[in-house]
Design a protein around this nucleic acid. Structure first.
Lengths: 90, 90
DNA sequence: CGCGATTCTTACCTGCAGGTGAGTCCCCCA
DNA sequence: TGGGGGACTCACCTGCAGGTAAGAATCGCG
């Protein structure tokens, strides 16, 4: 569920309860293509990690935030980060 | 460093300080090909996660175990597992 | 002498993850 | 009336992760 080049990058932008719209994510991750961003967001959504909120406005506005379960992933990933930082000079 | 289809599978077999030789890993993970097993072990070794011990015998014997740093990855992955188990019925 | 065990290597192939560029739909507003 | 902003969607392509099969080095043993 977390594999792939972009999933974690997206998640790190959403941790802390941040709510971002599509174009904000695009700007936050300049290297990603629109197609990939959508694709990964849809997968994260169908896995129940992020929630997608469409505001029926014109121009359209779509916001993404973590679900409670998605948010609870944060400490586990933090543990991984701390492990990586403890790496003996390889 | 942990990406790919096999890295985590291999690691889970080595957690708990287990020391396994090549052929034991082959048997423990029947679905993996020899090429992949070697390739992934070499990468894990060059990343400092597993240690490779060659016994100069005939027939050759090669053992793999986690480094201290590799072993310290266990709790972090456990946190991930627990997160996965907490998943609301998707 | 030739076979088998063990660990690794090499060559080749396939499928899919990921990249690129263009097109679509909708409505407001100048 | 058409241009522009926003969020996609589509068709196509490339590269690499991963799979398959065979070969190679070593020596002890029947």
């Amino acid at each position: 569920m977390l594999e792939g080049k972009w999933k974690l990058v997206i998640l790190f932008h959403l941790f802390g309860g941040r709510v971002l719209r599509f174009s904000e994510l695009e700007r936050a991750i300049p290297a990603i293509s629109q197609k990939m961003l959508i694709q990964q967001l849809r997968q994260l959504e169908s896995d129940g990690i992020v929630r997608r909120i469409v505001h029926p406005e014109v121009p359209p506005r779509v916001e993404y935030r973590l679900t409670d379960w998605g948010q609870s992933l944060c400490p586990a990933l933090d543990a991984l980060l701390q492990w990586a930082e403890r790496r003996p000079d390889a």
